[in-house]
Computed example of a mutant assay.
Amino acid sequence: MALKAHTREVLFCDLIVKRRAQHAPFPEMSKLVALWKRAADQKLPPKLFDKGEASCIINEVRIDEARQIVTILLSVADKRAPDQTYGNHVKRSSRTVAKEADEGNEHSAHLVISLTHRPNYPETYACLVERVPTLSIPRVQSMLNDVVKRYCEIDPSLFSFNAVSGAKAKVQNFIPNIILAGNPSAAFQRDIEEGRINGLRLIKSMPKQSLGSGNYLELSDLEVKVNVSKLIPPGQRWATILQAVQTQKATYSRAKMYLAPAGSDSAASFEFDTDTGAIIGEAYVRRQSISNIDPVLRSATDKIVDHLAMKMVALLEKERTG
């Protein structure tokens, strides 16, 4: 994707707070936000992706107590990107800005997250994510979880509860995590009800192990094929599939669907979480463009851009009350 200086696209998501310990309480959102703010204030070392070729940091966290919204600015730098060239074809001239040895092509993304949960869903918070290259929804999720994990490793007692075993109660520490779940777009609702389901697979992550000799092949996921009947009642296809998949969530954490729009011969694939039905990645996620941004934007910034952040906050407030 290519960014424009005066336009940004935002993705509508839900931030779902989870806990790895079965009987642990769901952690307070404010405690997670405090850790993300600490990472920005303390300049926590970056999280590395792609064998160290890409890195991500939290630049700034701003909490608006009055509106009950937090704004987070993240940046990613990719060393594999080429030197940037700017051209003026009228003058037949161009210039290239060369990277230094440890630099990467940088992009920044704003997140605005509600600090009040969705009605009737106490672990779910409305969220908007600015869409930029190299900083996908799964990567943002991974970054936020990594910060929480690192601070919990430093101080294991950050999140704890009284676990009852027999007649005794024992303090047990745990590490919470979050899921960034993309909200389904209108195209998703249309295609799954009117289109053609070409395939469905349940996916179980496996401990990595070599296949054969030489360590050239490696097992990572186990997939199970699911046959989907064409006789699912109209208007109930997604609900029927999700309810069935959720019965297997203890074994299979993800599912992949191959979906072709009505009248199309080609199918697109997307994954979703078997517990929540959350769309993983950006395909079929609801989005909206913010245009006529003035002053115009750069590809990266080390501070929250107020005039963009406030537009995103206004969208989130409308989403939260709509």
Rank of each mutant, 00 (worst) to 15 (best):
L111F: 08
H110K: 07
D146Y: 13
V132C: 04
T116L: 01
E153G: 05
E153H: 06
E153D: 12
Y125K: 00
T124K: 00
T124M: 02
L144S: 05
A101K: 15
V97H: 15
S142Y: 08
N145Y: 07
C152H: 14
S160T: 12
N162Q: 15
F159R: 10
H110R: 06
D146C: 08
T116W: 00
I137A: 08
R131W: 06
S157F: 09
T96F: 02
E123D: 14
F159I: 09
A163H: 09
Y121M: 08
L144T: 06
C127Y: 00
E100V: 10
K99I: 02
V129M: 13
F159C: 06
E100I: 11
I137P: 07
F161Y: 15
L144P: 10
I113G: 04
R139C: 08
T116G: 00
E103F: 14
S160D: 04
R92I: 03
R118M: 13
P156V: 10
V147F: 08
N145D: 10
H117D: 04
K99S: 02
L111A: 07
E130P: 03
F159M: 11
L158R: 11
N162P: 04
D155T: 14
T124P: 01
P156T: 11
T134D: 12
S160A: 11
S136C: 03
D146S: 12
E153F: 03
S93W: 07
V148F: 02
V140R: 10
Q141N: 11
S94Q: 14
I113A: 10
K91Y: 08
S142G: 10
R139I: 08
P119K: 00
S93M: 14
P138Y: 05
T96W: 01
A163Y: 03
V112S: 12
S94P: 04
S114F: 00
I137G: 05
A126Q: 08
V132H: 10
G104S: 05
L128H: 02
M143Q: 14
R131S: 15
P156L: 11
Y121G: 00
L135Y: 06
N145F: 07
R95S: 12
L111K: 05
L135V: 07
Y125A: 01
